[in-house]
Amino acid sequence: MNAQAVKPKVRIATTSLAGCFGCHMSFLDIDERILPLLDVVEFDRSPLTDIKRCGPCDVGIVEGGVCNAENVHVLREFRNNCKILVAIGACAANGGLPAQRNHLDLRDILEEVYQTDPGVGHGGIPNDPELPLPLNQVHPIHEVVKVDYFLPGCPPPADAIWKFLTDLIAGRTPHLGHGLIHYD
């Protein structure tokens, strides 16, 4: 066995908090490049593996902002376990679409959606103890934990994700440049 063969794989965890999984879908748009990627990385907790808890990892990739109590727990679990934490997509970086509720009162929103709006059921505001409590406002993840890298875009193009990951894995400072940096 040569030295290269025993080189440990980079362990990556991914999650979607207050996101739409669009960033994960965009990641899958790297298409067949996922095969050479899997030669050098392995996945820990991720929607792709269905592992439920994040173990010690080299890289944690977080999609979505923080909109409820569970998001905060998961985000802290990622920060505690990942050497490098990456915010991927507009929502993780600035709250994105879910944060468009931020200028509205949370109770007013819930009452309109679950009680007064004629188009939706009148079952009342859900209060099952299993449901995570929503936060008053949606926050970007860097307002809760330290974030090492940001990858903007809604979603970031697959080529941007590929460039970012290959730079990071090769030990370079990730650099996107014109055409790959997008806020939309």
């Binding site: 915010a87 507009a90 970086a93 600035n94 994105g96 679409l97 944060a99 468009q100 200028h103 970007p140 860097h142 974030v147 890298y149 940001f150 990858l151 903007p152 809604c154 996107l176 014109h178 940096i181 997008h182 806020y183 939309d184």
Partner: peptide, 27 residues
């Protein structure tokens, strides 16, 4: 509130273009 994905000016916006130019990756 600069929510580019819903803005019709996206791609034509100088604030956004300067963000790209100066490599603003995070607010």
């Amino acid at each position: 509130n600069h929510f580019c994905p819903s803005c019709e000016k996206s791609g034509h916006c100088k604030l956004q273009a300067l963000g790209y130019e100066l490599e603003v990756m995070t607010p």
